[in-house]
Amino acid sequence: MKPKLRKSWLLLHVISSVGWLGVTIGMLVLALAAFDAPQLYQAMSLLGDLVVLPLALTALVTGVVLSLGTKWGLVKHRWVLVKFVLTVIAVIATTFSLRSGLHEAAGGVVAAGSDVLVACCVSLTLYTFNTVLSVFKPWGRTRWG
């Protein structure tokens, strides 16, 4: 991949990943506040559908493009492979679990509020761990590297 193209993909990847992390922090704050103001779940539901999912998919796609188009490869280094697997898990969980929990909470299902809070905490931990992997690049090469 040529340097300008790589930097463009990298920029899009960083923006979408940081955006995903930032919206998750905002969702965590809203999930805490929603225990006293349940109408906030409606805003969280909109964020989940219109912001979180597109950011998650963009981060996944740009990450795959970068891994395949650079020296890191998708399966050459353990940190890239782990980050990819965790991102796929996060996208699936966001699509099928977090969003449905947000819709239930927005619809007035009281028990869904604690599930949403837990999902936000797990998501934040996962995205933070992925960020650490991107910075420190631990563990060396895989057997395919």
Results as ranks from 00 to 15, higher is better:
residue 3 P to C: 05
residue 5 L to Q: 15
residue 5 L to M: 14
residue 7 K to Y: 10
residue 9 W to I: 12
residue 10 L to C: 05
residue 11 L to C: 10
residue 13 H to G: 07
residue 19 G to P: 07
residue 24 T to E: 04
residue 24 T to L: 02
residue 25 I to A: 15
residue 25 I to Q: 07
residue 34 A to C: 01
residue 36 D to V: 04
residue 38 P to F: 04
residue 38 P to R: 04
residue 38 P to V: 04
residue 39 Q to C: 00
residue 40 L to R: 12
residue 41 Y to N: 12
residue 41 Y to V: 04
residue 41 Y to Q: 08
residue 42 Q to M: 12
residue 45 S to H: 14
residue 46 L to D: 14
residue 50 L to V: 10
residue 55 L to D: 05
residue 57 L to P: 02
residue 57 L to E: 05
residue 57 L to K: 05
residue 58 T to Q: 08
residue 62 T to G: 06
residue 63 G to T: 04
residue 66 L to S: 07
residue 66 L to I: 08
residue 66 L to V: 06
residue 69 G to R: 08
residue 70 T to C: 05
residue 71 K to L: 12
residue 71 K to E: 15
residue 73 G to H: 00
residue 75 V to Q: 10
residue 76 K to D: 13
residue 76 K to T: 11
residue 82 V to E: 01
residue 83 K to N: 11
residue 90 A to Q: 10
residue 92 I to G: 09
residue 92 I to A: 15
residue 93 A to H: 06
residue 97 S to A: 11
residue 97 S to P: 00
residue 97 S to F: 11
residue 98 L to D: 03
residue 98 L to N: 00
residue 103 H to F: 09
residue 104 E to T: 11
residue 104 E to P: 03
residue 104 E to H: 13
residue 108 G to L: 07
residue 109 V to K: 15
residue 110 V to H: 12
residue 111 A to V: 13
residue 113 G to P: 01
residue 115 D to H: 13
residue 119 A to Y: 13
residue 119 A to W: 11
residue 124 L to W: 03
residue 129 F to M: 05
residue 133 L to S: 03
residue 139 W to D: 06
residue 139 W to C: 03
residue 142 T to P: 03
residue 142 T to V: 08
residue 144 W to Q: 10
residue 145 G to F: 04
